[in-house]
Design a protein around this nucleic acid. Structure first.
Lengths: 341, 341
DNA sequence: CTGAAAGCGCTTACAG
DNA sequence: CTGAAAGCGCTTACAG
């Protein structure tokens, strides 16, 4: 019965024009309060629903945002970006927008193919969630629509970005380890893979510098290739007393590896991660890590992009969202006597 | 420069009508091959992109599907439905459709509020992913648009559904335990919470019946309240030799609990799960479980719903997607001598 | 306060 | 093979 009720139907039944109905339903000037009430009343009885497509065509706004996530971040054991997407979705809906997810396949990324949402003019703007390769960044840059990088950035690009505070997160985590008496501290992560891993490394390094601890090149341990595919981690020998891992999943692998070699965590080796994702509490011991404020990141991203849509000229640059150390059981204070040197 | 190029622009530049451009770009009859080529050529040079909103208004199809997930299934440690959503997204995009995610909050579900995508006519149909309460089912039923339940069903409802083969999955898993010599087998799950948990229980029960094993009421162990909130699991005493858990996450909890009590898995107790999600391989020992074919479920759901959109009269009823046992390390053959009675 | 006109960009049915 | 006309449902700008 509420089969495609239009404003005209309401107008006809009330003997007014559809212009008046439009004004009433949108709370615009120019309708008497009494008539407005009658219109709203009837609209609700008839189960009137706005036809967004008509609105879209008239205004040139789809009220959709495309969220692009590179496929390699969406494996069965990686739920982090999906959770971010979920938060984006919620933030968007609260403002009358909707998110459309596009998983960017490896081959499309290589072949520099834009997602279908682009060719179909399905969206008013794009959020790229997760680092894409240099050439694809250029392709995105050439899109003449608002866009934003989330959880990574590119120095050569003029595209706004929202990232978690990787640098200070890792810096504080490393400070904490040093406070606990550690001085032989390794960093696990490929420095050339993503801006996040690189910035976390730099935070770790800053902490080392401030404490006049020499950075041992052999204690920068690779965990993946530059495309982001995990490789087998080779632990150095002798072992450091602590590992700063670029993410919880890698921390989990490192702990597995240590256990396999007969070492105990944190008794023999302390380990910290980054993200506070599912790995942090599924592993034994529970991981000390940085809780990335996903909700805040999503909200910031959505707000920035929406502002870009409404004011195409304003730019934000790089927006940093603070994280927070979560202290758990993977770090042990080091007795000075235990030190290797 | 590709600022809102329309068919008319192409038509004007070529001195033809926009009707001809439309036909050419859509590969319809009635344009000479030569002209069609010129049109496509120019369209591509100009960076023409179709205006979906116009198409939508004309055809009355949005080419969007709403995917509704109850909030309680989307906690930080539950990525299963998000992964299903991801697969739905991919399946949809392959057919020119797009998914719009709506997380149904607990209060909206209680208050029987329909999502905004409904009021905005944003979608051509709905996939409800994850069991909703009875009253909300009725609300969904009254929507005069194609809809489908995914991963659950309701006997009183005429809405099509796609589910994994819960019954036979649990049946085969229990058969396997019995083959390994187990006879004291508990089931963990609230039988009144979801259709999946109920059907898995029934599969377990069928296996027991077939082997003439008495169903001990005390060995049906509760894991959550009827709203789905997890509760503390109380293990029975004496312990059975095996647990059939309604999902991997609960299997994980059970194993944690057993370990805490000083029991070893699988040496003292065997445990199996269902889903083959991240918990299955993150726990020690790795879990023997049923691999739910997420990709197949998503594809089946998308195809069914799309057919419903194009043929509003056809119904499928309940579609069952087969899963597969994944044998890992959480089950140990039971030596007859070990039996408790 | 109320409404007639025009137009967003496309496609279908029809005429030539 | 090609195109003029009409209409999908809305909203803005203008006239009364």
């Amino acid at each position: 019965m509420n089969k495609n009720i239009t404003m005209r139907d309401i107008a006809n039944q009330l003997g007014v024009s559809s212009v008046t109905v439009s004004k009433a339903l949108n709370d615009k000037e120019g309708v008497s309060d009494e008539l407005k009430e009658r219109i709203k009343q009837l609209a609700s009885e008839l189960g009137y629903r706005v036809n967004m497509a008509a609105k879209t065509m008239r205004e040139g706004l789809t009220y959709n945002i495309g969220v692009i996530i590179p496929e390699r971040f969406t494996g069965p054991d990686q739920s982090f970006y999906l959770r971010v997407y979920q938060e984006i979705s919620k933030s968007l809906e609260a403002t009358g927008y909707y998110g459309i997810l596009h998983i960017l396949s490896g081959s499309d990324e290589e072949g520099l193919l834009l997602p279908r949402i682009y060719y179909d003019r399905k969206v008013d703007g794009f959020i790229v969630l997760g680092q894409i390769n240099k050439s694809y960044i250029e392709v995105i840059e050439n899109i003449e629509q608002p866009k934003l990088f989330l959880d990574f950035y590119d120095e050569h690009s003029s595209i706004d970005s929202v990232v978690t505070d990787n640098f200070y997160g890792a810096y504080e985590l490393t400070n904490y380890l040093i406070q606990q008496g550690h001085r032989d501290i390794a960093y696990v992560g490929n420095l050339y893979s993503t801006s996040s891993i690189q910035d976390r490394f730099l935070g770790y390094y800053k902490s080392l510098l401030e404490h006049h601890i020499h950075l041992e090149p052999k204690w920068i341990i690779n965990d993946r290739d530059e495309q982001g595919t995990y490789i087998d981690i080779e632990l150095p020998s002798p072992l450091p007393t602590a590992f700063v891992c670029n993410c919880d999943q890698v921390a989990y692998s490192v702990v597995q590896k240590l256990k396999l070699m007969g070492h105990r965590v944190p008794e023999d080796c302390s380990v910290v991660g980054f993200d506070n994702d599912i790995y942090a509490t599924l592993m034994e011991p529970h991981l000390t890590t940085i809780d990335v404020n996903i909700n805040q990141m999503a909200q910031t991203a959505v707000q920035s992009l929406l502002r870009q849509i409404n004011h195409p000229d304003v730019r934000f640059g790089r927006l940093v969202v603070k994280g927070e150390i979560i202290y758990r059981d993977s770090v042990k204070p080091l007795n000075p006597a235990d030190r290797s040197e």
